[in-house]
Design a protein around this nucleic acid. Structure first.
Ligand code: FES
Ligand code: FES
Lengths: 160, 160
DNA sequence: AGAATACCCGAGTAAATTTGTCAACATTGG
DNA sequence: CCAATGTTGACAAATTTACTCGGGTATTCT
């Protein structure tokens, strides 16, 4: 398994915030309950997201968290990279440390890691919270008005 | 970082075996030295690969390891999945346990993990050891002589 | 003002995983 | 036989994960 609970919980939490976007702050307890995340743990995760500028907080009674930007301007990559760090399969495909491996120019496995990295980023860079919300709406009730470009949905059953 | 050293060392080792394919068994010590892998550790890894039917061993003096199949019939996925287990970003996209998550109908993050999984498999299923060997030959021919300071940062930009 | 609500922060920690190391043994070639 | 090499299982340090806990601070409601 690739991701830790940080990334998984974090994306769930951000999605939950996206659902309530524009309707005031959402208390941590609500996020934790709805997405079934240990509240004390989520506290830590959302602190990271806050410091990264993805969410902002409102203190005091009736406070909570809200998205800092519009859901269409927050990508899955923003969330996952913030919480998990680089999703590179190996050190040598990180920008930070390009000289960690000794014979990088001859190491052919490096090109494998690069291709995996690019492939992952194709997915997570190209998907925003708004895309997730749209998918969710479409699944929950498939009537409604909106007829816009079907960009990436491929009608796979989401079970149940 | 996604992969552990198991997968990284393992793919290096398999690549090394691919280079020597058809020329008799390669001792563990040679693989370890050429790919700079702790020999005692590689011992464990190659045992896994042997049990998975990817390599076979020749005991005794002048013994060593060799690929069980042709390099073009061994994919990167074969190696990585053997050593790392499923590369799924989350439990819920494993065939083994599809009902592990309780409210899968509301969970839109699952589709994200599915897309990442598919994307990774597009890469690793479609690449064989022979592909890696071919790439290696090509690189050695083009920059045969000198060891230049290469900036691979350019390739990072491609992933957008 | 005072109480309730809710974020903020740093410590601690048990369990799991990773990344090896080591020793004894089995097999083969010369 | 002897040396080279694979086979196996045990052990363990270091790191990471996935939390828990306790006190502190800011804000709002009455
Ligand atoms: S593993 Fe990093 S360059 Fe080969
Ligand atoms: S995380 Fe598994 S279904 Fe949502």
């Amino acid at each position: 398994m690739i991701l830790s609970t940080k990334g998984r919980y974090g994306l769930k939490a951000m999605f939950e915030l996206g659902l309530h976007h524009g309707t005031g702050p959402v208390p941590l307890k609500v996020i934790a309950e709805k997405q079934r995340i240990p509240e004390n743990y989520l506290e830590q995760l959302i602190a990271i997201l806050r410091k990264a500028g993805l969410v902002r907080s409102v203190r005091g009674a009736q406070g909570g968290y809200m998205l800092m930007k519009q859901p269409e301007n927050i990508t899955v990559a923003d969330v996952l990279l913030t919480l998990e760090g680089p999703l590179a399969p190996s050190e040598c495909v990180l920008e930070s440390e390009s000289s960690s491996c000794d014979n990088a120019e001859k190491c052919i496995t490096r090109t494998v890691w690069e291709k995996i990295l690019i492939s992952i980023h194709d997915v997570i860079d190209g998907m925003t919270l708004q895309d997730m919300i749209d998918d969710h709406q479409k699944i929950n009730h498939t009537e409604e008005n909106d007829q816009q470009e079907n960009q990436n949905v491929k009608e796979q059953e989401m079970m149940l």
